[in-house]
Computed example of a mutant assay.
Amino acid sequence: MNQPHLFVEVHILQSLPPSNVNRDDSGTPKQAQFGGARRARVSSQAWKRATRTEYARQVPEADRATRTKRIATLLTERLARSTDKGGAGLDPEQADRLATALLEPLGIAKSAKKDDQSAYLLFFGKKQLDDLVAALDGRAAELAALPDDELKAEVKQIPVVQTLSTGHPAEVALFGRMVADLPALNVDASVQVAHALSTHAVHTEFDYFTAVDDENTEDHGAGMIGTVEFNSSTLYRYAVLGVHQLRDNLSDTAETRDTAVRFVEAFARSMPTGHQNSFAHRTLPHLVLLTVRTDQPVNLVSAYEKPVAGTTGLAEESAVQLAEELTKVGETWGNKPLRTLATYTAEKDKVTDAFGPSLSFPALLDALGALVGDWLDGGAAAAAGDCAEAGAR
Rank of each mutant, 00 (worst) to 15 (best):
A46E: 00
E77S: 13
R57G: 09
E77T: 13
R39D: 08
R39N: 07
A37K: 14
R38L: 15
P29H: 02
R81N: 11
V21L: 15
Q31P: 08
A80R: 12
I12W: 03
Q58K: 13
A80E: 14
S44H: 09
Q33F: 13
G36C: 03
R39W: 07
L16N: 06
H5N: 11
T66F: 11
S44R: 10
A65M: 07
G86N: 09
R64D: 08
R41H: 02
K30C: 00
Q14E: 05
R78L: 15
R39C: 04
Y55Q: 09
R78T: 08
A72S: 12
R70G: 05
A37N: 12
G87W: 04
I71Q: 06
T68S: 13
V59S: 09
K85F: 06
Q45K: 04
R57P: 04
V21A: 15
P60S: 09
D25E: 13
P18F: 07
G35F: 02
T83V: 14
R78Y: 08
T83Q: 15
R41D: 01
I12N: 01
E77Q: 15
R52S: 10
E61C: 05
A65T: 07
G36T: 02
P29F: 02
R67K: 08
A62F: 08
D84K: 10
I12M: 07
G89E: 13
A62P: 02
T28S: 07
R78Q: 14
Y55M: 14
R49L: 06
A46K: 00
L16S: 06
S19H: 13
Y55G: 06
L13V: 05
G87L: 02
T51P: 04
R81L: 13
G27T: 03
V8S: 00
